[in-house]
């Protein structure tokens, strides 16, 4: 009997220590703690834990803080972003790599130049490879594309036939809305 009581008590101990129990709940628990050293230890542990959380010293906002924040809020009204108008402390890791090229004109020119050189190299490589792997006329005629086109033509024809017959079209957002 005792152990089941202990189980119940222990679920209530944190709430008891946090002052969250009603007097009706707290009173029998208090009685139990007086007679049960194990549960009392559990309660004491929580009490010990709370010593690790000393009340912090108050930290007063600097003078003029509210006026400054209100000004910043209203100044940013036109651009409505979630970014604060006054920047946060500099953060080393958060600078995104992408905007660099557009921000520095010299770097931008360099990156553009490098890109065009790479593009030219890639193009000549592609041309060379195309030259090497030129397919014969026979290979070209064997391409599966024409059959796919034929299939598509057939489907299109069937579709227009259906429409002519008054078969219902696939429902679009508009038709669904009108229903």
């Amino acid at each position: 009997m005792k152990s089941s009581t202990c189980h119940t008590i222990r679920t209530l101990v944190p709430g008891y220590m946090d002052g969250e129990l009603s007097e009706e709940q707290a009173s029998p628990l208090r009685q139990h703690l007086l007679s049960c050293p194990t549960c009392r230890n559990a309660a004491q542990d929580l009490g010990n834990l709370s010593h690790w959380f000393p009340t912090p010293e108050t930290l007063a906002p600097p003078a003029g803080f509210a006026a400054r924040v209100a000004r910043a809020a209203f100044a940013g009204e036109g651009g409505q972003t979630n970014k604060p108008s006054a920047p946060l402390r500099p953060q080393v890791e958060s600078t995104p790599a992408a905007p660099l090229a557009s921000e520095d004109p010299q770097l931008r020119r360099f990156v553009l130049g490098l890109t065009s050189v790479a593009a030219a190299l890639l193009l000549s490589l592609a041309l060379f490879m195309a030259q090497e792997k030129q397919p014969s006329g026979e290979e070209l005629s064997a391409e599966p594309i024409p059959t796919a086109l034929e299939e598509l033509d057939r489907l299109n024809a069937a579709d227009s036939l259906n429409r002519a017959k008054g078969v219902q079209e696939m429902p679009t957002a508009r038709t669904l809305k009108n229903r």
Binding site: P56, L59, P62, A73, G76, Q80, P84, A86, L88, R89
Partner: peptide, 23 residues
């Protein structure tokens, strides 16, 4: 101030929070 012990950071975060609340 329970999240950071750096006073300047506390100020930045609180200011940011008020600006977000305003938006």
């Amino acid at each position: 101030r329970n999240y950071t012990r750096n006073t300047a950071e506390v100020e930045d975060i609180v200011q940011d929070a008020f600006l977000k609340a305003y938006v």
